[in-house]
Each structure stands twice: as C-alpha cells, then as structure tokens.
C-alpha cells in the first residue's frame, strides 16, 4: 500500500539515462511524467499538479538538469524547491489585537478537528505566550458539541462560554467577546459547527458571526487526509470568509498530505499549525520544508538530494 516516493519513481528513468550518459527531451518528458504521478498519488490537486509540472519542466529543460551528471537527482531538487517555494515560509504566528481581546474564529468542514484544535490553541496561547483565553461554544447543531468543548475546557482548566443549544451562534460569539472584556481574557476562540462549503445558509451564518465580532484571525481547519476536493473547500471558505490561516490536522497519520499544497496554491494564506494527535498539547508549528519532503515520499528524497 505504501506509495512509491518520487525517488523510487525516478529510479528506472535515471538508470536509463546513466546508461547513455546524456539527457534527451524524451528523458525529461519521462521524468516529469513520474513527477506528475507521484504528486497525484500524494493527493495534490489535479490542477495544482498541472501548473507545478509545467514549471518544473521549464526548469528541467534548462542547463541545470540537461547538463548535470546526475539528472534524476537534479529533477528531485528542482521539484523540492518548487514545492517548498509554493508552501511558503514558516509562520506559526497568531495575531494580537490592539484592543484585547483578540478574536479567533475556527471554521471548516464536519469532523476536520475544529473543536479539538480550538482547545489546543487555547492551551498553546496560555503556555507559550502566557495568555488567558476564553473558549466560546458556537456550535449549537452537532449533538453534544457544547459538551465536548466544555469537557475540553475542563481538561485544560480554561473557561468556556456557552449558552446551550437554543441560542443563536451570532449572539453567542458576540456575548463571548463581551464576557472576555469583562473578565479580562485576552483571547476568545470561537468554535463553530462543521459545515459544507456549499451550504449557503450555514456559510452565511459564518459571515454574520464574522461581521458581529470582526475576528483578528479566521482559521480554516483542514483534515490532512483530504483528497482532490481540498481546493474546492479551501477556495469556498476563503472566498466567503477571507481566511487568515490554515491548520492542518491529523498529520500524525500516514497520509502524504498533498492537500497542503492544494490549499496553499488556491488560498495563498499560510498553513500555520499542524495537529499531531488527539491530545490537547499535540499542536506544532507547521514546517513547510518537512511537508514538501513528506508529499514527495520523505527520507529517500533527502538522501538523494544530499548526493546531488
């Protein structure tokens, strides 16, 4: 089941070239074909792959690769550079409002990890930045969503603002911010219900919450196992809510995580954090370079580049 990494994929093409000692246009074509397949197998979106492969091909036809003694390795190097570039630099920062509280809104599809990540963020802000966050339970739809956030709050000993399930999410968000002001909480993290990006009513609700509390950060939470649909999801949420950062969850799994590339490519907002487990301290700064290697099949790639 383990997918072949890019390096494995390029092995046979490389052997062929080594035999001849010269790179032809056909060889470049063969190699870029393997790049395309490797990226698609890692769940990078089809259109994103198309653009990437075009750029990689342009560079590969240049001297860099054609005249290299190790063309296969050079291709990998070019691919990795392009991927890292697309992924952007490391940016695990969280906004600080001039007038506290800083408001953070968590949004995303059902089951992506919003509630858990909200708890993790609160924990992170308290631990790393010595802040006193307030969690707000604005998911009134999913059965026991409020209980879940309250339990998370208890586990962390961080306060949770809730009005049960018969209240309006917009009112909950607004009142949570008021309470934070009164109680001197410097962050409010609003947990919202999971929703489909094509659900007009529920997307409009998020817009209303946003208008009511003007969040300093709107974090889109995305499951790293997401396939080709990641672009549609990220694009819709970003178009309607102007997402300020992405959190990629469940990266403790064995997924290649090509969705990361897709999301970066379509939203042009940084992936800030990585969810690395179910426990509330398992949140890490997102590492763009590590992610590029992961998408390409990890270790084997690094060792080959070192030889290049």
């Amino acid at each position: 089941m383990a997918f072949e990494g890019l390096a494995d994929r390029l092995q046979s093409t490389m052997k062929k070239i080594t035999g001849k000692g010269k790179v032809s246009e056909q060889d470049v074509k063969d190699m870029t074909r393997e790049v395309r397949l490797a990226l698609l197998e890692a769940d990078v979106n089809f259109k994103v792959v198309k653009d990437l492969v075009k750029r990689i091909k342009e560079r590969a036809v240049g001297q860099e690769v054609m005249e290299s003694l190790t063309p296969g390795q050079q291709v990998i190097k070019v691919v990795r550079e392009e991927l890292t570039e697309l992924m952007g630099g490391e940016q695990s920062t969280v906004a600080v409002a001039d007038n506290p509280p800083t408001v953070i809104m968590m949004v995303g599809l059902q089951g992506a990890g919003k509630t858990t990540t909200g708890g993790k963020l609160a924990n992170y802000l308290r631990k790393k930045h010595n802040r006193s966050p307030l969690l707000a339970a604005a998911d009134v739809y999913r059965p026991a969503a409020v209980d879940q956030l309250e339990t998370v709050g208890e586990q962390l000993d961080i306060p949770v603002f809730s009005k049960g399930t018969n209240a309006d999410p917009v009112a909950i968000a607004r009142e949570a911010v008021e309470q934070a002001k009164a109680e001197h909480n410097d962050y409010v993290i609003i947990d919202t219900a999971g929703r489909l990006h094509v659900d007009e009513d529920l997307m409009a609700e998020l817009e209303q919450i946003k208008a009511a509390v003007t969040p300093d950060e709107t974090f889109l939470v995305v499951d790293s196992m997401t396939g080709q649909d990641a672009v549609n999801v990220a694009e819709s949420f970003n178009d309607q809510l102007a997402v300020s950062g992405v959190v990629l969850t469940k990266l403790d799994g064995d997924t290649r995580g090509g969705a990361a590339l897709s999301i970066r490519a379509v939203t042009d907002t940084p992936i800030k954090f990585a969810g690395m487990g179910e426990k509330l301290d398992q949140l890490e700064a997102f590492q763009p370079e590590g992610m590029a290697s992961r998408i390409l099949g990890m270790g084997d790639v690094l060792s080959l580049i070192e030889k290049a």
Partner: peptide, 27 residues
C-alpha cells in the same frame, strides 16, 4: 468521502485488525 488516497490504507489496516465486512461512505 472527502478522503483521498489514504482511504485505501485505512481499509487495509482496519481490515487486518477487525476483518471489515462493509463500508459506510459518509459526507
């Protein structure tokens, strides 16, 4: 249903552990 290629690895490993007899494809 939003899951990409990782679903194949899920099906394989969960089957090894619990002998899966069917799938519920959600969302």
């Amino acid at each position: 249903a939003t899951t990409g290629q990782n679903a194949l690895s899920q099906a394989k490993t969960f089957s090894e552990a619990t002998d899966v007899s069917g799938i519920i494809l959600t969302k």
